[in-house]
Nucleic acid binder design. Structure first.
Length: 271
DNA sequence: CAACCGCCCTGGGAGC
DNA sequence: TGCTCCCAGGGCGGTT
């Protein structure tokens, strides 16, 4: 399940294969993604790819004829493969390149999207409006979290997963970061001190950075663009370990549901 | 506005 | 072995 690290790993994987290439053809085998695949994509044949950017969990492919917004949803994966490679089940879209290679999108659950935007989507596209800061930039600070949380009763876990507050922190990394910071996931965001936010913010950055370096977290679906799994799963301290022993204090980890999401924490280490 | 909940979807695992 | 049920969850949109 792609969160920010997995999307960034995908971006880094596809970028060198895409930038400078001319698109010779777009093959859309199934238009039924989260929203119907933009028909305008068919007109990108002949366009040259200028850059592959990431904003939150969106990838933005810059071309000489507009922009493509790609979201991997829950189960989307991008691979770069020789163009003649036969398509398998759930291979919904190919971006065929002049190099003889294609960018191929596979998405069993079809929660992802491929949308066309004539203008850069950061300036006006509804999907990218109102997003919070990127967690791996200097714009994401303890002060921001502290200020925007004052007066809020919302649990800290759903608070840091809210894209209006900070983007890209999904369920896996929210669980992991709160464990490392020793913060109980149900604690009201508005009742956490600046000092604790000053501990939490570097931990979030560190967790995401480390996950990127490991190639992301592979649970079922995610693979890097060469098909290799990510290795961050080995680093997980709480996610997917409900009922097992805390790796730090050997207390049994608790599992609850918070905002419809499975939440695992150590009742002793996290207060 | 804050907070919550339903929904979209398929594969995989558990249970019978 | 094969069926049914349930769960995974990002993020939009609707409701309280």
């Amino acid at each position: 399940m792609p969160e920010l690290p997995e999307v960034e790993v995908s971006r880094r994987g596809i970028e060198p294969h895409l930038v400078g290439q001319t698109i010779t053809q777009i093959i859309v085998r199934d238009t039924r993604l989260r929203w119907p695949v933009s028909p305008e994509l068919n007109e990108l044949a002949g366009a040259q790819i200028l850059a592959v950017e990431r904003r939150a969990k969106y990838l933005i492919i810059h071309t000489t004829q507009g922009y493509v917004i790609v979201h991997l949803g829950m189960s989307g994966a991008l691979r770069v493969i020789p163009s003649a490679t036969p398509a398998v089940k759930h291979d919904h879209i190919d971006l065929v390149l002049q190099s003889g290679w294609s960018l191929r999108y596979n998405d069993p659950r079809r929660f992802g999207c491929w949308l066309y935007s004539a203008e850069h989507p950061s300036s006006g596209h509804p999907l990218l409006q109102g997003l919070g800061p990127e967690p791996l930039t200097d714009a994401f600070t303890a002060d921001i979290l502290y200020q925007s949380s004052r007066g809020r009763q919302q649990a800290i876990k759903t608070f840091i997963m809210d894209n209006h507050i900070v983007v890209g922190v999904g369920n896996i990394y929210a669980n992991e970061a709160l464990f490392k910071a020793g913060i109980h996931p149900q604690r009201a965001a508005g009742r956490i001190s600046l000092k604790r936010y000053q501990q939490l913010v570097p931990i979030i950055k560190d967790t995401l950075t480390k996950a990127i370096a490991q190639g992301g977290t592979t649970l079922q679906d995610f693979t890097q663009v060469d098909g290799q799994p990510g290795y961050f799963k080995q680093e997980l301290m709480v996610y997917g370990r409900g009922g097992k022993m805390c790796m730090v204090c050997r207390t049994r980890l608790k599992e609850i549901r918070l905002g419809q999401r499975s939440t695992v924490y150590c009742p002793r280490c996290q207060r």
